[in-house]
Design a protein around this nucleic acid. Structure first.
Length: 671
DNA sequence: GAGCACTGC
């Protein structure tokens, strides 16, 4: 059988294939439908093809499918292009940040939900799209939630416009100038919300009682086992369970869900300690940790085949719940816990807390045991506890800073944020605090309208509003080159990589970069050092592989996280291009650090703090008492007046990424 | 002198 036949056979065997005609028919009849598809149903790859074949892409219109994650958008698009036997980027394509693989002929377009939100800024009624499919809606990321609200509104606007167009058409005969409306023929926007089970009702209610369809999945059965009693020490319980499975169950790898890096490292260590107590014949266990901040070359270890006669034990965070699918797993250990970020809109304080998972999440976790054959899931809690879990997790929109979202929606012409039809409304406090912050940044006027040009410019930058403002201000202070680097570096995950066992070595490597002015200037120095090194190797070779290898070497020599650095380089060039487009020229302050400090102080004045007699700091805006985080270059010098970028609550309240503020009263002493 | 779940524009 050749590849084409194999693809055809695969496609027709998928559970969704038997309901193709029915689904197409329902999409014709209704403007919005909900599809509940279990894993393996084929909904993500097949439905767009069915709709395209049924003629929904007439007049060059596009079917858009959104995903919460970049990798998913790319891999699914590649698969569908192959199934359609077309070149990727032609009829089937994808678009994610930094990468647009579409063309004029693209009819099926996979993309991230965040990217579609950005597109809406340029085309608020999304006129290119006939159908938008929102996939993985049950994950309820901020982007998905905002998108759902927006799409609901766009549907309405397009219906209204359509009615007006008809009126215009009638008037055409009278006025003979309907050219503008007649050549942009608008169709209603069809919406398809795709979700995993449990919450179809919520989506259906939100979309005015839209019909929901269930599509069978293709999963192997998974036995669920509970403990009799709650486990007071889940780390220890995990450890015991790993050995119980290893000694009593048949072959197959184990996936254990833990809450964070530290826990994973300690379970890893303990497994190896206890292995020594086992008879030699039972020591055939291989542990593989995986969590997001682990360098990618180490992450790849989970995909290496397990050596013959060995059992692999994967110790994972939530990354293995959705983002990474690991083959070979037959046993899942579920602690029932997850670490989530929390945000206090009143204080602006962020923290990470460990909370019980939802029923949906526990189902997702147990499902990881049944991908290749029947499996078992050991839940480290009693069944009675399972029934007490919430159906689904608190959506992200209720747990995050809303400033960016509020700014986006304002730019889309949605003026009354408190009235906006969110599926789940964020608290009034969270919204009003964001409005106030945007007002203080100059993005909103006294009557709460987006300011022109500052507010509009800020909305266009793919940055936190406070960073967008910093960038705009830096033009006046003649240090936009430096600020561009700072906002790029601040937009990515931590740039410094500190493995516990080599902490001293790392610290001495970073000394080269550190500046007594603060962490911002330090970031500029790191970025410039990396950019200069990159320039040097690019002059020596043009081979992409060699360039990458050298850059990775430089990163590991300097204890810099290579993924973060590459990301910062990408953000930097994207924003730079954007600045060119809006004719903002770049300027450098050179060695004039005072100028840069003035600009930092002016930009981050909302995050200013002053030293107290006891060496702690008082945040000016809220009066909170905080400490300088020990990772800051200013940890020891403790200047009188600082600005900061992050406020985090751990065992104490800390401010992170700090610079000396410029205080005019003290300037003569310092400069 | 501390510790960071996961995404995304």
């Amino acid at each position: 059988m050749d590849r084409k036949d194999a693809i055809l056979q695969h496609r027709t065997s998928l559970p969704i294939a038997s309901v193709e005609m029915r689904l197409v028919d329902e999409v014709r009849k209704h403007d919005t439908i909900i599809i509940v598809g279990e894993t393996g149903s084929g909904k993500t790859t097949q439905l767009p093809q069915y709709l395209s074949n049924a003629g929904f892409c007439f007049d060059g219109k596009v079917i858009g499918i959104t995903q919460p994650r970049r990798v998913a958008a790319v891999t699914v698009a590649k698969r569908v292009a192959e199934e359609c036997d077309v070149q990727l980027g032609q009829k089937v394509g994808y678009a994610i940040r930094f990468e647009d693989v579409t063309s004029r002929s693209t009819r099926i377009k996979y993309m991230t939900d965040g990217l579609l939100l950005r597109e809406a800024l340029l085309d608020p009624i999304l006129s290119r799209y006939n159908i938008i499919i929102v996939d993985e809606a049950h994950e309820r990321t901020v982007h998905t939630d905002v998108l759902l609200g927006l799409l609901k509104k766009v549907q309405d606007t397009r219906l209204q416009k359509q009615k007006l167009d008809k009126l215009d058409l009638n008037n055409l005969i009278q006025f003979d100038n309907g050219s503008q409306s007649s050549n942009t023929k608008l169709t209603p926007l069809k919406l398809i919300i795709m979700s995993a089970s449990l919450d179809a009702k919520g989506f259906s209610e939100y979309f005015g009682g839209a019909k929901a369809f269930h599509v069978q999945g293709r999963q192997h059965p998974v036995d669920i086992l509970y403990t009799y009693h709650p486990e007071p020490d889940y780390v220890d319980a995990t450890l015991i369970m790993i050995f119980q499975i290893h000694l009593e169950e048949g072959p197959g790898d184990i996936l254990a869900f833990l809450t964070g890096q530290e826990e994973i490292e300690s379970v890893d260590r303990l497994v190896h300690e206890r292995l020594k107590q086992l008879p030699e014949g039972s020591r055939n266990v291989l542990t593989v940790p995986i969590y997001s901040s682990l360098p990618s070359e180490h992450q790849m270890n989970v995909f290496k085949p397990t050596p013959v006669s060995f059992r692999k034990v994967i110790l994972a965070t939530n990354i293995a719940e959705t983002s990474v699918t690991i083959p070979g797993v037959k046993y899942v250990i579920d602690t029932g816990l997850v670490k989530v970020k929390n945000y206090n809109p009143v204080t602006g304080m962020e923290s990470l807390i460990i909370v019980p998972i939802s029923k949906a999440q526990s189902l997702q976790r147990s499902g990881r045991a049944g991908r290749e054959g029947p499996g078992k899931c050991f839940r480290l809690y009693p069944e009675s506890e399972f029934w007490k879990l919430k159906d689904s997790a608190v959506p992200e929109i209720k747990r995050c800073n809303l400033s960016n979202i509020v700014l986006q929606l304002k730019a889309l012409g949605i003026d009354n944020l408190l009235e906006f039809d969110f599926m789940e409304k964020p608290s009034r406090e969270a919204i009003t605090n964001s409005l106030q912050q945007l007002y203080l940044l100059g993005a909103l006027s006294d009557d709460c309208k987006l300011t022109d040009p500052v507010g509009f410019q800020m909305a266009r930058f793919p940055l936190d509003p406070i960073y967008s403002k910093a960038l705009i201000l830096s033009g006046e202070f003649k240090c936009s080159e430096e600020m561009l680097i700072v906002v790029a570096m601040l937009s990515v995950e931590s740039i410094f990589y500190s493995p516990r066992e080599k902490l001293e070595e790392a610290r001495s490597a970073w000394k080269r970069f550190s500046s007594s002015d603060g962490d911002h200037q330090t970031l500029v120095i790191v970025f410039r050092a990396a950019a200069e090194y990159l320039k040097k190797i690019k002059a020596a070779t043009s081979k992409t592989k060699a360039i990458e290898k050298n850059l990775n070497r430089w990163c590991s020599d300097n204890f810099i996280n290579n993924r973060s650095l590459k990301h910062a380089l990408d953000v930097h060039s994207q924003i730079k291009r954007h600045l060119e487009q809006i004719d903002m020229s770049l300027s450098s302050c050179g060695d004039d650090m005072l100028q840069f400090r003035k600009c930092l102080t002016a930009s981050f004045f909302l995050n200013a703090a002053e030293k107290q007699p006891d060496g702690s700091y008082r945040v000016k805006a809220t009066g909170q008492n905080v400490q300088i985080h020990p990772s800051s270059v200013l940890f020891r010098s403790k200047p009188d007046s600082i600005i900061f970028n992050e406020l985090v609550q751990t065992n104490q309240s800390y401010v992170r990424t700090i610079s000396r503020a410029w205080s005019p009263g003290l300037v003569s002493y310092y400069d």
